[in-house]
């Protein structure tokens, strides 16, 4: 039995038939969600220059969905998330797994020129002790997104699913805490 009665019911109402193994329901599911899965996979593989693998990875996603008598679909809870969002997440995970496997299957070591294997001496990491709890995870996340990833406030707000004003106030509070901490440390 597929759980919940949330947003997915409006998206695709044949999940019960699908998990019962009805071929027509499966065909409709594929026709409906192959474009969603394929787009998610392609977007993830593109920066690594591996869009040519997108079809195989998308097929792997469908194999995962069918595996163990549709166990993934049986565990899906429609009251928690939309089916298309959940499939996008699964497609991303499959793409990341694929990229990791490709990374592991690298050139044999003896074919790589020695100069390329040379490693720079490790630099001493500049690490200043920060008391646990000085910044909340969200405050650290906002600073990371704004300063390390150079994202705009609006983008950051969209990723976190909050209002831009929440990002601004979180940023402000985080800096106040850091200033106070370093001020005490410096003096």
């Amino acid at each position: 039995m597929v759980k919940g009665a949330g947003p997915a019911r409006a998206e695709f109402d044949d999940l019960e038939r699908l998990v019962a193994g009805e071929k027509a329901a499966w065909d409709r599911f594929v026709a409906r969600y192959a474009p969603v899965i394929f787009a998610a996979v392609r977007r993830k593989l593109a920066p690594a220059g591996r869009t040519g693998d997108a079809e195989d990875v998308a097929q792997d996603v469908f194999i995962r969905i069918c595996a163990r008598d549709f166990r993934l679909i049986r565990n899906y809870d429609a009251s928690r998330a939309k089916l298309s969002t959940w499939l996008t997440v699964i497609a991303h995970s499959a793409s990341i797994d694929h990229l990791r496997r490709q990374k592991r299957a690298t050139q044999p070591l003896d074919t790589v020129p020695e100069a390329r294997l040379a490693v720079d001496p490790p630099k001493d990491p500049v690490k200043i002790d920060i008391p646990p709890g000085l910044l909340s995870p969200r405050q650290a996340l906002v600073l990371e997104m704004l300063y390390q990833r150079e994202m705009e406030v609006a983008e950051t707000a969209e990723i976190l699913g909050v209002e831009p004003q929440t990002v601004r106030s979180t940023h402000h509070k985080a800096l106040v805490k850091l200033r106070a901490h370093f001020h005490e440390e410096d003096f």
Binding site: P125, E144, L175, L178
Partner: peptide
């Protein structure tokens, strides 16, 4: 100043964070 503060705190925060 904000960027510098975060650059200074980043590694330490990560090391201490759960």
């Amino acid at each position: 100043a904000g960027a510098e503060l975060w650059a200074r705190a980043r590694e330490g925060w990560r090391a201490a964070a759960p």
